[in-house]
Nucleic acid binder design. Sequence first.
DNA 1: GGCGTCACGGTTGAT
DNA 2: ACATCAACCGTGACG
Length: 251
Amino acid sequence: MKSKLYVPGVGQAGVNQLGGVFVNGRPLPDHVRRQIVELALVGIRPCDISRKLLVSHGCVSKILTRFYETGSIRPGSINGGNGRHSKKTYSTRIEMNKCQNVGVSPPSSSSSNKIVDNEESSSVRNYHSFPTSPDHLPSNSYSTSRYFSFHHHSQFFFQHQPPPNPSSDEIDASDDASDDDEDQDDEDEDNNSIISVDTKPSTSSSSLIKHSIENILSNKVTIKTKRPLSSSSNSSNNEQPNNKRQKSIAC
DNA sequence: GGCGTCACGGTTGAT
DNA sequence: ACATCAACCGTGACG
């Protein structure tokens, strides 16, 4: 059960069981997708992510699965422009991500894809600075497996990265990336705290990432293995329309 | 309880 | 300009 409302210029918007607003048939905003990946990478479980970001579990699972498989947080193609060639786009995205990381221009591609890959490669570079010591590993087993799964796929990209030489190409690339970020729309303003991580030294990146995640979570969500269900959540102004929604939120 | 998967209805862009 | 089709989207339900 979901309420629907018409948003001019957007289409048929709806509210899911978690209370999140979505537009049926349209991909989630990029910053939401990025937050999903960010939260997953720091060990937050998908169920917590779905609750926090008010995105359905299936969507979180789908986005994370795609990210782990392709390294892309972007929706397939609808907004990218080539809706009917998306599968080919996915296969080429991986190649182009690799090319981005070695500083080689991707094979012939549309301008939209270039923009996408600049952002994605930037994201991948960000995640490369994630902590690798066991002290920073996610606590639970599922997150740990996902964590290693990501790093497994990350190495696929990172092994093509040039050695950390901030003198020449890296600086130019970061400058270009920053210029691209400035040219992008307001959506990326929400991601500045995250994107800016890659320009920082790796020693402080973990704290910055943690800080950015805390910002995302607004200091309200803590990684817990057990959720309190009884008092505050039920007594809040969140009305439960039916038992199904109650069950869904409580799970 | 948490997760992966699938059907469904919807949107988008190409033909 | 309009209709049709295929691909993709997120949601919700199921196992």
